[in-house]
């Protein structure tokens, strides 16, 4: 099995997504529903790369 969008019933696919933090915006490819666009963030991403970038932004 793989994660699916519960509303649209389709598999998720990577897509460039815009994030913002501390007044800065940047794009990163994350899993999303290809139909409705709902963004899926896994714990590994939130605690890993995202937390790392958040810390960097906070230092700026």
């Amino acid at each position: 099995m793989a994660w699916q969008c519960a509303k649209c019933g389709v598999d998720l696919a990577p897509k460039s997504t815009v994030f913002s933090y501390m007044g800065m915006t940047f794009a990163h490819e994350v899993l999303r529903c290809p139909v409705c666009g709902l963004v899926f963030i896994q714990k590994e991403l939130a605690d890993g790369k995202m937390a790392e970038v958040e810390q960097l932004m906070e230092e700026k």
């Binding site: 815009v18 994030f19 913002s20 915006t25 666009g37 963004v39 939130a46 995202m50 937390a51 958040e54």
Partner: peptide, 10 residues
Amino acid sequence: WSHRMHIEAD
């Protein structure tokens, strides 16, 4: 879990 970044394009 949580994150601080805001997802702009959802």
